[in-house]
Design a protein around this nucleic acid. Structure first.
Lengths: 257, 257
DNA sequence: ACCTGAACACCGTTCAAGT
DNA sequence: ACCTGAACACCGTTCAAGT
């Protein structure tokens, strides 16, 4: 079986393309852009091969010349999103501020295309833009002074936290309007009305819950992760223990799941 | 429009049910259990009204007497999963150990039903089991000494991080076998082979990446979050500032996204 | 070489008719 | 009261035929 990443025909071999009935000349880039536009304008349910063909002015089956299947198209969309998110980012040299900015960019980039993000945030594309992002983030951590094993461990937690919250919050944003409104109402209509004798902790904090649960918890979780990373770095660089050697023994030790 | 949570007919009004053609007596519970079994045995694509009807021995359209639509069924599945995850959990009195255990349970519970988790982890059900979970976790944090506003903020970050990682890791687990294998191979086949001159940070850490990216980063992220929470608690209780009053000013301050 | 159109095997949901 | 079966408006994907 061939890899999911290859197109059916390598781009270079597709030189002179016959325009479709409506005069459009198809290309992978045009299809990805159109897919992103469809997702943005009409939601996740709108990304069907048939509607994509219609939007492009081509027969749906023509798309199978460019992408093996819908999953292959989705990975291309995912990589394009990563590229857009990091296109104009530049490091400042302050590792903590840089990671904070990167995390918030990934998160808000996902919310700008929630339907695409919810379908693709958890995928490893192995394509150009993703590789560039991995290289950049590892560079920030190694530049800060984290030894390699530690840099990778924190890289993994940082990236997966960003992607996981991006997908979570994108999923809420991308919910059909009826379900979205129903969920927003649950905190006011259900939680805020629970009696104190059966649910003392919810009743005592209801006011805070109604206020806080509307916003994303990602900025809080991100700052907690960065705070823990900074504490760890201080321990490594200030504690006199040789950096990068020996097992990690305290605080943020790896744990069996 | 009626709420997403109501069934078409209240359970009490459905007394004597006619068995289906194949002799099965339908019920909401039976349908939810069958849906979970279908998801587990045949993956997320198997949860269709038609296949569920087939598995139950009933006409697909009969299910619409019990659930408004597939989303309504999904929320019932989500709440059932929460219930199973916390069914036999008991607090030890050590807030940090208790939260760690709860987080790991949510995560591994999701991986036990990845197809269900990926569809439902980001939903607010407002149903019985979810309410019980919120009450329990808030109780642990308030019992630890966090003032109400802080307890809610940390509750939100803790729960959303657990659910977000659960969904992320469940999504990888639930991927169709071909895509799953392709992703696993990307770290070895693509990242581990990048040259040091173009990608120095990836090349320097390739060995760690191949090893680390196979596992979930959740235990690391969870320990980092709990470490930051512990530091914050020490600050509040040891720092002499009145608990629960005044704005939070340092370290883990809330941030605009 | 590339696009088209028909075909196949599916979906969720509604509603009149049956029991 | 509850289940059934037909109907409607969709899906993704394949492949022989057209240009």
């Amino acid at each position: 079986m061939t890899s999911t990443n290859d197109r059916v025909v390598p781009p270079a071999a597709r030189r002179r393309r016959r325009p479709t009935k409506t005069g459009v000349v198809l290309s992978g880039e045009l299809i990805v852009e159109t897919a992103l536009r469809l997702l943005k304008e009409h939601g996740a349910d709108a990304l069907t091969v048939r509607r994509l063909g219609l939007a492009l002015g081509a027969d749906p089956s023509a798309l199978y010349r460019y992408f093996r299947d819908t999953d292959d198209l989705l990975l291309a969309v995912a990589d394009e999103l990563i590229g857009r998110t990091l296109r104009d980012w530049r490091p400042t040299g302050d590792w903590r501020a840089d990671l904070r900015d990167l995390g918030l960019r990934v998160h808000s980039g996902s919310l700008a295309h929630p339907q695409a993000a919810v379908l693709s945030s958890y995928r490893v594309t192995g394509r150009a833009h993703e590789i560039q992002a991995v290289e950049t983030i590892l560079g920030v951590l190694r530049g800060a002074g984290f030894p390699d094993a530690e840099a990778v461990r924190i890289y993994h937690a940082f990236v997966d936290q960003a992607l996981a919250f991006a997908a979570l919050d994108a999923a809420s944003t991308a919910l059909p309007p009826a379900a979205r409104e129903a969920e927003a109402g649950v905190w006011r209509a259900t939680y805020a009305r629970l009696p104190a004798d059966s649910h003392p902790n919810i009743a005592a904090t209801a006011r805070h819950l109604v206020h806080d649960m509307r916003r994303s918890a990602y900025p809080t979780a991100l700052d907690m992760l960065l705070g823990a990373a900074a504490a760890r770095l201080a321990e490594i660089t200030g504690g006199g223990r040789a950096a990068g050697t020996g097992p990690v023994r305290d605080g943020m030790r790896p744990a069996a799941d």
